[in-house]
Structure formats: C-alpha cells, structure tokens
C-alpha cells in the first residue's frame, strides 16, 4: 500500500478462547480520510478498532499506524510494555463510556497524557488543554469535575484528552452510543470539525446518516469478516451484498439528513 495509507492492517486475526472474533482482516485507511466501521453487534468491529492501538493484541497479522509497524505473524515476540505504550501514544481513542478519570478535573484529564507520557511541563500542558477545551466548546468547564458534566460534555472532554497527545489518527468506539439522543449532535459536530481539519479517523458507529455524510468510506463487518467496503454514500444507499442490505434495512427510517 502507498505511503499515503495511514492505517494498514494485513491478515489480522484474533480469538478469545475458541471464539474467532477477527478472521483475517485486511484494511487500509488513507491519510486524512474518515472510515466508518458498521455491522451488527458481535461482528468484531470494536475488537478490530481496539487492535489498531493494541488495547487488544492480535494473535496474527501486521499492523501499521503512520511510521510505526508491528508484526504479529508467527514467531514474532509480543511487544513489551514500553513498545506498546509508544505505539499507543500516537493514536487517540474515544470510548463509548467516555472513561474520563473521575479523580481529576476536566483540565487535568486533558493534561494527563501530555504531562505523564510526553513529560510536557504543566504550564504548557494547561495552555494546550485550554485550547482544546475551547475547540470542543467547553472552555468554561476546565475546572469542573467530570461527574458534574452531561454525557455529551464528557465525551467532548474525552475527545480533547485524546487530541492532547497530537495523535496521527483518531479511533472512535461507538462514541455516541451511550448518549441521550439530544446529546448526540454536539459530539458528532466535534467529530465533523475534526474531519474537516483532515484528521485521519476510524469510527465504529451506529449513526448511519452520519456515516453517510461524514465518512469517505464505509466498511461493513459481520462474523469477524469484512463483507463489503466502498464509498460511504454508495455503501449506505446502495450496498451490493445482501448481508449489508439486510443490516441497513434496520436503519432506513432513521436515514434523514444528519
């Protein structure tokens, strides 16, 4: 694949016990593009996302993010703690349940990555945090505790925290699934602005209209395999595989303009 491919997966396999969750996945994400990963629950899309920053370590396969690559094909030793941490520091991840650190204020959450991992001086990290909080529309919440925020605000803090590491790619694992419907829009708006800035992103999502409008490409997974992938609008509106059509038929009444 070309140097313009930011994320590259080749032959990635993962099993939990006897259950094979990822069956030989090969996937590329072009630099600056947005790829939506859709599929029924249990299809392996979250596991795939987590294997890109090695929160789940694959059993087999090759993974490259930017300049960093790790090979898990037979005989290669598992990466150590230092290697894993360095690899993960270059990717940002946003989780379904936000996972903010409850014992830290909002700005401390955003500062935690740069201060702890990059050894950035606190004053500099605070400036960075305030800039990012302003960017996600939460400049006035810097001193708040996470438990005083709404779900949508928490998720925006989580996005700011991930961005503070100046990642090359952002991974979103069902970032709006735990939110009340009226709070989804503010989080999607932040993701949309990141897309406009040219951030490379891979999103696991159930927001089909959002996938159609914001993603460049859509990947449909089922049973640990990539069934079909293609340009977003074509994939959502006119998929070629029966399995994709069957899955998307559950969403069609919700596919208005987002």
């Amino acid at each position: 694949m070309s140097a313009q491919t930011m994320i590259e997966l080749v032959g990635v396999r993962k099993s939990f016990g006897k259950l094979e969750v990822l069956k030989d996945i090969t996937l590329g994400v072009a630099k600056g593009s947005v790829v939506a990963l859709i599929g029924p629950s249990g299809s392996g899309k979250s596991t795939l996302l987590r294997s890109i920053n090695l929160l789940t370590v694959p059993d087999q396969g090759f993974i490259r993010v930017g300049e960093q690559a790790l090979d898990f094909t037979g005989g290669h030793r598992l990466p150590g703690d230092r290697e894993l941490a360095a690899f993960r520091a270059r990717t940002g991840m946003v989780f379904q349940n936000f996972n903010l650190f409850p014992h830290m204020s909002v700005e401390e959450n955003v500062m935690s990555g740069p201060v702890t991992v990059l050894r950035m001086p606190k004053a500099e990290a605070r400036l960075l945090a305030h800039g990012l909080l302003a960017k996600v529309g939460l400049a006035d919440k810097a001193a708040a505790q996470p438990d005083k925020l709404s779900g949508g605000q928490r998720q925006r803090v989580a996005i700011a925290r991930a961005l503070a590491m100046k990642p090359e790619v952002m991974l979103f694992d069902e970032a709006t699934s735990a939110l009340d419907p009226e709070l989804v829009g503010e989080v999607l708006a932040v993701i949309r602005s990141l897309a406009a800035e040219g951030m490379t992103m891979l999103l696991v999502t159930h927001e089909m209209a959002f996938a159609r409008d914001v993603a460049d490409r859509v990947v449909f997974m089922r049973d640990g395999c990539v069934v079909e992938e293609g340009p977003a609008r074509q994939m959502i509106e006119a998929p070629s595989q029966p399995a994709t059509r069957a899955f998307l038929s559950h969403f069609h009444n919700g596919l208005g303009p987002s």
Binding site: A85, F95, T116
Partner: peptide, 27 residues
C-alpha cells in the same frame, strides 16, 4: 476500578507504572 480506566490510560500511551500511579491507585 472499572476496566475502562485501564483502557483510557493505555490508549493515552501510559506505561504500566504510570497507569498504576496516576489512574488506578488514586481511585
């Protein structure tokens, strides 16, 4: 401590001792 806290610290690139010291043990 919730597993999501481990995920969040690891995703930021924290080493094991940093994760323990900054995120897990304080909670």
């Amino acid at each position: 401590v919730d597993m999501g806290q481990w995920d969040a610290g690891r995703a930021l690139g924290m080493r094991r001792h940093q994760l323990m010291g900054q995120v897990i043990l304080p909670q």
